[in-house]
Computed example of a mutant assay.
Amino acid sequence: MINGGKPMTFAVFSCSQYQAACQSTKIGRAVEGRELATIHDYRQRLGQYRSDPDLQFSHQIALWIVVWLSAFQIGKLLDLSMLETRHYERDITDVRDTKLLAAIIPDRSLVGANQEKWPLDTLSESKRQGVIWRIIGYVKSILSYDPATGRGVIGVEFAGTGVTSSAGPFDKGNFTQAVGYSTECVRNNVDLQWGEGYYRGFFALTMNSKPLNATYYSVRNVSNALSLHVFKSAFRNFDGFASANFTVNAGENRLACPVASGHALSGALKSQVN
């Protein structure tokens, strides 16, 4: 029996930017020191991060698993494999011209040969041992399949956002425009069942021996002073809501239908896109 028979919950989020993108001064999180270049610089920055009382409290009450190469076994309930998909076996990481990059290193892969083999071996062994849930964590969207035949389907992929980062191509500054953009993404991507183009947020995964539920929590505004509560170096944002909930049944490699029960409080759901 795992966790006393109670469901196990993971919060899955990206919060790598302590300074919350360009809002550092506004929310009292300006970083100290210069651009990181030496071991002293990194130690100084880490010390500043760890001075945050909220971060200290979070480490006290919950286990943290960061996205670097590692594996975790939690009884027969869960096998978790973490992949590094940003720098592992990447000789060049800052060339944004993908055609040029392909010409320089034609056989360059996202995770590298070793990481491609390792999770496959891990997943196979996990299945042989009868583990209920097999989860791979990574920082890039990598799955694709043929929706007509089902070929290539190995599981369900939940891709979240950075909690404090800018919205990138979705950052239209207008709710209607952002929703329109996410709607187009869902309409034009056969793999994508739901897209959130306006709110930053994070996923909470709750699992037991039967279903796995994934809830996306949207944060209304990470830079609005009215929604930020700053105490010393602490940054608390209570202005959020559960915008969509998804279910995966044990033993299945797809979302339970109707997806998100046919309704989401924000974003674009494929069943609602014409």
Rank of each mutant, 00 (worst) to 15 (best):
G47S: 14
R134P: 03
V31C: 09
F170V: 02
R236P: 01
K210H: 11
W68C: 08
P258A: 02
S223N: 05
G150I: 02
A11T: 03
G251S: 15
V273S: 13
Q73I: 02
D54T: 02
L110R: 12
I92T: 07
V66L: 04
Y181C: 04
N3Q: 05
Q272C: 07
M207Y: 07
N188I: 00
V156A: 01
R50F: 09
E89K: 15
I92Y: 15
I39G: 03
W118A: 15
D239K: 07
G197N: 05
V111L: 11
D91W: 06
A204Q: 09
G173A: 04
V31E: 09
D146K: 15
Q272F: 00
T206P: 14
Q56N: 06
I74G: 00
A214W: 04
G262T: 06
Q23I: 14
A159M: 14
G173C: 08
L269P: 10
I132P: 04
G4Q: 01
E125R: 15
A250F: 07
S81P: 06
F13W: 13
L63P: 03
P147H: 07
Y181T: 09
F158C: 04
G150W: 12
L36T: 15
G180M: 09
V163E: 03
A204W: 03
A244W: 00
A256H: 00
Y18N: 13
I132H: 13
V153I: 15
K232R: 08
S166D: 14
Q115E: 14
L80F: 15
L192S: 10
R128D: 06
W64H: 08
M8C: 12
D41L: 06
T161Y: 00
N3A: 06
W118V: 02
I132Y: 07
C257Q: 13
I104C: 06
A62E: 01
I136P: 08
G28W: 08
W64K: 05
H263G: 04
I61D: 00
V95S: 08
F13P: 14
W64Q: 12
Q115Y: 10
S166I: 05
R86Y: 09
S166W: 11
Q56S: 07
F203K: 07
V219C: 04
M207Q: 09
L212M: 13
K172A: 14
N224A: 14
N237Q: 10
A242P: 15
R220H: 03
L265W: 08
G267H: 06
R128H: 02
A11V: 13
I104F: 05
A225H: 05
S182I: 01
Q48Y: 05
V153A: 00
Y42A: 14
D91M: 09
N208Y: 04
P147D: 01
K140W: 04
F57H: 03
G162H: 01
N253T: 08
I39R: 07
E35V: 12
R236K: 10
V95Y: 01
V273Q: 09
G162E: 03
S223C: 08
L205E: 00
W194G: 11
A37P: 10
G251M: 11
L101C: 02
Y18I: 06
K6P: 11
A204T: 13
A20N: 13
I74P: 10
